[in-house]
Computed example of a mutant assay.
Amino acid sequence: MEGNLLSEGNVNPQAFKPLKELTYLRLGRNHFRSIPRGLPASLLELYLENNLIEEISETAFNHTTNINVVVLRHNKLDESSIAPLAWINHRNLESLDLSHNNFYLVPSFLPKSLIHLVLAGNQIERIPGYVFAHMEPGLEYLYLSYNKLDGDAIEPESFLGTFNTMTELCLDHNQLTSIPMGINEMTTLHFLRLNNNKIRHISEDAICDPLNENDSHLVALRLENNFLDPRKIPPTAFSCVRSYSSVVLKPQRIK
């Protein structure tokens, strides 16, 4: 039902009530300002991209307790427009796309069950401490490309709760000046993107923990388009990368 003129004003809350087995609903490219009311309890995937959604109320997903995928990219959401109890207690919501909205922070009160989070193309300047710490079993895929993360963006506790689950982390196209704290504690990380930042130095233990001599786990590491001098990178800095051919260091920007 995407690409129409639908909004909360012309969709009756009882419209979906007879659809007892509806699991997949696309309402993208319409005129919704909030999550449509009366969504069926059977819903597993909801696509609301390219609308005008500016709030998610406490009751927006009350009846869709089985929902697994929610796509809200290209809307008008920010960190203050999501009610604290909107979805934090959902046990099945594993994938959430909030890319291309108006977030300045990674939002709090994210679903406990979240595995896949997309926040690319916002204005995010900070990842607050403990923002992922409540998740069970923990976040695996985090996409924060094309934001405004800089040297003060990431706290020691920012990635708490992800150290044993994070598989893919994209922090490319930001303004980071160093390797963020916590990356060297991610024991399951396979893909790391830090290209197109302002990184000038890599310390010996910034990416790989020299005290952890377990199997090399990083499959791909991208660091091109920073301000790095490859000759000054410590020889053990990439010891947890499976193959040195998987490290992309060229080109670098001229200082």
Rank of each mutant, 00 (worst) to 15 (best):
E2G: 15
L5Q: 14
L6H: 06
S7T: 11
E8P: 01
G9Y: 14
G9W: 09
G9E: 15
N10D: 11
P13F: 07
P13K: 04
P18M: 07
E21L: 10
E21F: 09
T23H: 09
T23A: 13
Y24H: 12
R26W: 10
G28H: 04
R29K: 15
H31I: 01
F32Y: 02
G38Q: 12
G38L: 06
P40H: 04
P40M: 10
P40D: 06
A41I: 03
A41N: 08
A41D: 09
L48W: 10
N50M: 09
N51A: 03
L52N: 14
S57L: 11
T59I: 09
F61H: 03
N62P: 00
N62I: 05
H63N: 11
T64W: 06
I67S: 00
V69L: 06
V71F: 13
V71L: 10
V71R: 05
N75G: 08
L77C: 09
E79C: 03
E79R: 00
I82G: 00
I82C: 02
A83H: 13
I88Q: 13
L93S: 06
E94S: 14
S95V: 11
D97G: 00
L98Q: 08
S99R: 03
H100F: 15
N101K: 05
F103V: 07
L105I: 04
L105H: 03
F109Y: 13
P111T: 01
L114Y: 02
H116F: 05
H116A: 00
L117I: 00
G121R: 01
G121Y: 01
Q123F: 15
G129C: 09
G129W: 11
Y130I: 05
Y130T: 11
M135C: 07
E136W: 00
E140L: 05
Y141C: 02
E157T: 10
F159T: 06
M166Q: 02
E168Y: 10
C170L: 09
L171F: 00
Q175P: 00
Q175F: 12
T177D: 05
T177S: 12
N184Y: 02
T188V: 08
H190G: 11
H190Q: 15
L192H: 04
L194W: 02
N196H: 15
N196L: 12
H201N: 12
A206Q: 03
D209F: 05
S216H: 13
H217A: 02
L218M: 02
V219T: 12
A220E: 15
L223V: 03
E224A: 10
E224R: 07
N225C: 04
P234N: 09
P235Y: 01
F238D: 04
R242L: 08
S246E: 09
V248W: 06
P251A: 10
K255H: 14
